[in-house]
Design a protein around this nucleic acid. Structure first.
Lengths: 396, 396
DNA sequence: ATCATTTAGTTAACAGATTTTACTAACCAT
DNA sequence: ATGGTTAGTAAAATCTGTTAACTAAATGAT
């Protein structure tokens, strides 16, 4: 059952209808090609109910009928798929280094995208700029004739769990920004579901929602960028991103892993971010925020202290993964963010540390698959779009 | 909406009925004394629905009518309360140092309790012993005439999220024990809901479910005992304990907070448990597992190195609390477990560390209330009983 | 004391959801 | 072709919460 399906727990017949519609839709999403009868079996609903619900979902452009099943026996079932042709969602990421935008369809394919490599200034200017780019994106031919389900925006900082407000983005210098309100001031933007979420949460959600193949029970997406954060998702039909009381779930960059260590910009010593983050590594290498970290590291790859620095960062990342496993215990780990451009020299020590320090609690059980996203340019933006779809799907 | 309400997401009319009944019951639990009309307002259901549901809940002994409301205006409402007189739940903790048993009623009052201070040996003997004690407990006069809702058992180790099996209890030397199956072999035990859960999870659930006054949005219960673990709960009407993929959520004792530090029994170095746990402190003081830690510490309170040891343990606990806050972000922290007998010398450094290291991410928002349970003898057992009630309540 | 007013709670008719049951559709093996 | 099997649909039945009208019980003004 969904945790975030409706704000209140009690429900009427309308609610029940909507719940079952969403469940059927979700079943079709997670198992493409099932027939009505398969879905009935899978969900526990009757053929009659599934039949009538599927009919409305097809009419409204959420599902499409595919080929006939070819398993012997009686009458073959008609395969059902999410309809990728009649809707789209907008997703955007306001990143420290620029804006990234995507439009994608119900199966997670990116229909059009755009990125502007220019650090955002103040919220108002950024909103205006983003609105302009969004409207440009909507002109893309791949989108023509589709209905827009809404807009999701990912931001580099914790978002209040009770209101769509960015509490703090240290790397942008923004505090308590109601970014969606600013966007609403802009002309010509589409209606629909509007969402704001933390960048790591959005990315995690997207990777989970649009997972190719058998989706994991849960996953954590570690976003290793200027700062380091993490988003968690779990839940079969209605994936839930735990946010915690103040939206700090997954703020692992500020967990202390080296008491008395280097001073962090948060005021504490020994935060994970002092060892592994675009911020700390640039500082150690004497780079500016705009400099390319991976290029510099590659250029100085021969220097022993640079090697040691990256090695230490990798090990810290591995330690974070281990600690994450003992606190959030996801069934899969995904590594993303611009630090992945450092590739092997960072990633290998991280994986090695993680492997080498599996303790009794873990060794018993099967190991945790780890996926690395080398280019996560649009991961968060696409994830924000996925969140829009998930929300829109419960209203249909 | 509940996360653990039913295994499948789709629902029929029966499900809807059960959902609303549970929601009404939960509303009465969380706000004792509301009238039918108040509950209707609170849940969004109509007076008619609430009226009919309340009638059956009163008939079945879950709710009782109380006094008339005294607010001016029209006809006064009739206050409703959970009925503490017609049911009871059994809760038991299989602890490293012995067995603890309680029987409690729907409002969380302990009607009868029992504890045996003798370390459990093998699972079978322990099950036999526990069954005997449970049946003794059921003879208690305070229980006479009540219906038993079931039995919850708390154990000192992770429980598989998919089956009620204790995966690993290092301090008991138990591995993959199906303790409930062993209990089922014993004669004369009552029917009803049977549950097995980790001790910290059970304690956390109980503190949340039977919270006196306005319950927090979520809470984490840190169990500081021989080992150190943590349980998390959140969810208004249907509190959920996240368990993770392998039941390791909250196994914070094995998060590494001092890389290269002392060797832990899990094989790694620098686990939190090497700094703050009954196990590590006893080892440092040269004590046996059966010795009283708090007595020894009090006896040697004058020694500087003992003071320093406890101080360091307290600081490590504070650090754990801080890291917990940045990963699980509960709205309230509860400290329990036998280490709390060390009182001020342990607790004060922990609180001081936690206060002193609030960083920007936290300082913004309101501070986190911390509650200390000095005597948590029956906390986990009562929590297990609470879990039984929660489960039974959705079936009524 | 009586009456209007207000709120609480109940009752009966209603609308809407899923299920049940029966049916038709479509394929395969004999 | 025919029987067996599975997919999907249609109509009746069942059960849910809602709506609307009612009764019940208190307050306060007359």
């Amino acid at each position: 059952m969904p945790n975030s399906f409706t704000p209140q727990a009690a429900g009427d017949l309308n609610y029940l209808k909507s719940l079952n519609r969403s469940t059927i839709l979700s079943t079709a999403r997670r198992h493409p090609g099932l027939s009505r009868a398969d879905i009935a079996l899978e969900t526990g609903l009757t053929k009659a109910t599934v039949g009538s619900v599927v009919q409305t979902l097809v009419e409204r452009g959420w599902l499409r009928e595919g080929e006939l099943h070819a398993r012997g026996g009686g009458r073959p079932g008609r395969a059902l798929y999410l309809d990728g042709d009649r809707h789209y969602m907008l997703g955007a990421e306001v990143g420290v280094k620029g804006l990234r935008l995507v439009a994608c369809n119900l199966v997670g394919e990116i229909l059009a995208s755009c990125h502007l490599e220019e650090p955002p200034s103040d919220p108002v200017t950024t909103a205006t700029c983003l609105a302009k780019l969004l409207n440009q994106l909507r002109e893309a031919p791949a989108i023509a004739g589709r209905r827009c389900l809404g807009l999701g925006v990912a931001v580099p900082g914790p978002v209040s769990p009770t209101a769509p407000i960015l509490s703090l983005a240290p790397n942008l210098g923004w505090i308590d920004v109601d970014f969606l309100a600013l966007l609403r001031e802009e002309p010509d933007l589409p209606d629909g579901v509007w969402l704001l979420d933390n960048e790591a949460n959005a990315a995690a959600f997207g990777e989970f929602y649009f997972f190719e193949g058998m989706p994991p029970e849960s996953l954590a997406y570690i976003s290793a960028d200027i700062g380091i954060g993490c988003g968690v998702v779990s839940g079969e039909h209605f994936p839930v991103v735990p946010r915690g009381y103040q939206g700090l779930v997954g703020e692992i960059g500020h967990t202390v892993i080296q008491p008395g260590g280097a001073l962090c910009h948060c005021g504490n010593r020994g935060c994970a971010e002092t060892l592994v983050s675009g911020w700390a590594l640039r500082e150690s290498l004497g780079l500016d925020i705009d400099d390319s970290l991976s290029a510099s590291v590659r250029a100085r790859a021969g220097e022993a202290d640079v090697q040691a620095l990256i090695q230490r960062a990798g090990e810290a990342l591995g330690l974070l993964m281990l600690n994450l496993h003992h606190t959030l215990n996801p069934s899969m780990l995904i590594l993303g963010g611009s630090l992945m451009w450092l590739k092997g020299p960072l990633i290998e020590p991280a994986l090695a540390y993680f492997e080498a320090h599996q303790n009794d609690l873990l060794r018993q059980s099967q190991s945790v698959p780890i996926k690395i996203i080398e280019d996560s340019t649009f991961t968060a933006a696409r994830g924000a779009a996925a969140q829009v779809m998930a929300r829109a799907a419960i209203e249909v």
